[in-house]
Amino acid sequence: MSEVKQIVNQLNAEGNLRHLLTLEGMPKEQIIHILDIAQQFVSVTDPAREVKKVPLLRGKSVFNLFFENSTRTRTTFEIAANRLSADVINLDILTSSTAKGESLLDTIDNLVAMQADIFIVRHSVSKAPIEIAQHVPDHVHVVNAGDGSHQHPTQGLLDMYTMRHFKRDFKGLKVAIIGDIVHSRVAKSNIFALRTLGCEDIRVIGPESLLPKDLDMLGVKVFHSMEEGLKGVDVVMTLRIQKERMEAGQVPEGEAFFKQYGLTPARLALAKPDAIVMHPGPMNRGVEIDSAVADGPQSVILNQVTFGIAVRMAVMSIVAGN
């Protein structure tokens, strides 16, 4: 997991965030700053607010470049950019020139020539957003919206915001992440952020084939039993099995996986009574999570989605210098 060697500097000469590409190595103060700015934007996302826009990105062009399917991330980035008063362009990859064989960087060069200011990039190839960030001119900013099995920094940040909102103190927090850890960019971003924010009890639960080999280096506790791993935790996060990133037969599927690693009410009862349940989506009910848990009183899954708008507003406003 610890594969990024400061490939590109996310900070500008003044020490401010220029790009957001990874949470590995990001200073604690920078993460807290983003969460604090997001807290200010939460009021803008309040459904009761009559005017839901602020002018911080007025005149800026935000290009959503999603080379992988997405519902929550793409839509919340679009909402966030609109609420910052930016001009939002959603590139249709299937009908763009990339479908004709144009290279990724040639596509980027053409969009820069169209006066793009911020690129939001999701790509199936790990580190593709980093390659773009190394290529663009200084006035253009890149936000990683998920790259391969590498990182998903805005999801990690909105998850940190959710935990802080409901639990406050990271130092005493006990967090369990369940399922396909090895293919999960979300899990990686969360682990890096939790360690930086002082969480000392991070647990991963899953079959050996879905757990990275280097977790010990990050101080993460490994469990293959739900019953052992869930004891006394404050936060339970379940993950989708990413079949698109693995070979057939690598893990039990469907009911077989649910029987071993599905989050049921009985298993959730092993956590603390006030434990919260999180999921980055999309959920596969009856595979990694029971509907009674997903829709239950301890679930904050929809809160994550709402907080994601504010967090993405914060990230875009910060990288753009506002």
Rank of each mutant, 00 (worst) to 15 (best):
V311G: 06
V175M: 03
F258Y: 15
H19T: 15
I309R: 04
V4G: 04
G146H: 13
T154C: 14
H152I: 07
V175E: 01
F307I: 13
D138A: 10
Q6L: 09
V305A: 06
T71H: 12
N90T: 14
H224M: 06
I289C: 04
R312W: 03
P280C: 12
S70K: 08
N64H: 09
Q40A: 13
I177M: 01
I79Y: 05
D180C: 09
A99Y: 07
D274G: 08
L20N: 05
Y161N: 00
V42S: 08
E102F: 05
T196A: 13
L215I: 14
G172V: 02
G232A: 01
A248E: 10
P212I: 12
I241R: 05
V315F: 00
E244W: 11
F166T: 02
A116W: 09
I289S: 03
H150K: 03
A13P: 03
L239M: 04
R72N: 04
R18C: 05
H152Q: 04
A269W: 01
Q10I: 00
V44Q: 01
D109I: 15
N303G: 13
R58Y: 13
A275Q: 05
H135P: 15
D295R: 09
E244P: 15
F67H: 07
I32F: 06
V121A: 04
L57I: 10
V220D: 00
T154I: 04
S85M: 13
V125M: 07
I132S: 05
S70W: 07
G146P: 15
Q30S: 15
L302H: 12
E78I: 12
E29H: 01
A38Y: 02
I177G: 00
V186R: 00
V54P: 00
R49I: 15
A86T: 11
A128F: 00
M226Q: 10
G198H: 02
N322W: 05
P27I: 14
T196S: 08
A248I: 14
D214G: 10
G172Q: 03
D138R: 04
F258C: 13
N82C: 11
M278V: 14
G206P: 14
M316G: 09
A80S: 12
G206S: 07
A133S: 08
L23A: 02
Q39Y: 02
F223V: 05
Q115W: 13
Q242G: 12
G25Q: 08
K5C: 12
D180S: 07
I120S: 12
A266S: 06
P212C: 10
Q242Y: 07
F192R: 01
N303S: 15
S189K: 10
P297Q: 14
K167G: 08
L23W: 06
K53N: 02
V182A: 12
K28G: 09
L218F: 07
L210Q: 01
I32R: 04
I177T: 00
N284M: 13
I205G: 00
R58N: 09
E255T: 08
L21M: 07
N16V: 00
A176S: 11
V182H: 02
M278W: 01
S299V: 15
V251M: 14
